[in-house]
Design a protein around this nucleic acid. Sequence first.
DNA 1: AGAATAGTGTCTTTGAGACAATATCTA
DNA 2: TAGATATTGTCTCAAAGACACTATTCT
Lengths: 248, 248
Amino acid sequence: MVQPMSPSLPDGVVPVPLSVDLVLLTVRDDQLAVLLVRRGIDPYRGRWALPGGFVRPGEDLADAAVRELAEETGLRHRPAHLEQLATYGTPGRDPRGHVVTVAFLALAPQSRAPVAGTDAAASRWAPLRDTSTAELAFDHAAILADGLERARSKIEYSAVATAFCEPEFTVADLRRIYELVWGCRLDPRNFHRKVTGTAGFLLPTGRFTTPDSGRPAELYRRGEAGVLHPAMLRPAREHPEQKRPEQS
Amino acid sequence: MVQPMSPSLPDGVVPVPLSVDLVLLTVRDDQLAVLLVRRGIDPYRGRWALPGGFVRPGEDLADAAVRELAEETGLRHRPAHLEQLATYGTPGRDPRGHVVTVAFLALAPQSRAPVAGTDAAASRWAPLRDTSTAELAFDHAAILADGLERARSKIEYSAVATAFCEPEFTVADLRRIYELVWGCRLDPRNFHRKVTGTAGFLLPTGRFTTPDSGRPAELYRRGEAGVLHPAMLRPAREHPEQKRPEQS
DNA sequence: AGAATAGTGTCTTTGAGACAATATCTA
DNA sequence: TAGATATTGTCTCAAAGACACTATTCT
């Protein structure tokens, strides 16, 4: 018998090199920042890129993302939040041929995400405000833009914004996260009312900060809620509202 | 010189068989239905599965999805809506080895989506209400569930529900779409107010239906809006609200 | 007229946004 | 005390949900 135990693939199937890339966001020095690595090999040698690498045989996609993160940047902890973003397979996106990459979005608090001794070439936290993403290798500028947009919309209706925070945090900490991710100012009083009024979002600890100035703030933990009811509404983009008044 | 023109992949990279699968939804006989094909080869020969197949070298992912749809079901038209859903690469999801699949979600009106003469094995529209998804091949039950959930949430904040409709449709047609996708009843009067009041959602044509009974309904076309402001709120799931009244 | 479906109006409640006022700390 | 930040409260407006009513066709 020449038939193997497991069925084989149809003839003519050409396998594809598959990689994972990671958009890891954090808040650092009061700025939203993304983790970048400097490429040590061609193509794009010396250019900044998202951390990532090739998937190994039999390896799960999310596992590959976490492994590459650890190998390239020394980050040992699994990020507080990790989700699949999208898969990019447009021909020509990689000069080495038809390489398809699965991108992930990860969020982490700064304390758990220092860029320590790294195996690979240099890595750094790039503040998104000051960084020109046009310099990134491959199509990583587009992937980063998609990751940012995902983060911006996801903190609206889910509690993932707490993934940027330490285990215990204040309402002001969380508000700053929203402000930095959305790039706008939020009213502290309305924000406080919303966030403490949304069931399951925050868990009061009864403990307080001891700030240098000002009234101490209560410390909270993430609640069990994954989805927010009601959602945190992002301030409306200045819509060129084409509201034509209907005629009588 | 042995160096090729384009840089080569690092040593040790093992390419992966990459496929695409399609969750194509439509409304048929007043029911939400998904397109399934019967597998003609092992593994899972004779079982129902989502339409899909392997990506060809240098082929874009979305193109592969549309091509496989045409080959397997004879559907020539590009679906009214096509978006990437997620990528599934858990080891063991395919008995033939480590096969990774990129799933797409597609929506189409029934008129454009008859299952005509098909190249491959049988295909059918499976009403989601009556169909046991446990019989599907591979992890297609999970992919279908993810696609459904994506559709359910996406019609909340975007105008994609019109992708289920003919080019010209009534408010009642659109309401039936929402009811079938969400699996609930909606108040016709409030729905009408919401949907006609959301800028850019619907474009009145000034023409009317000629029904057998009842007042004629105005016909609309899809507007230019992709995102809805305000969103169509899905009726709240019956939350086991853990609203503990705070003590004074 | 009566049935059927389309579309409008009205009331109530919820929640968002603007902003005043109070509370609790440090220097 | 002044300065700073946290938290509560109040008012107004927009929009959702419930539901009565009018409009336009058919038999």
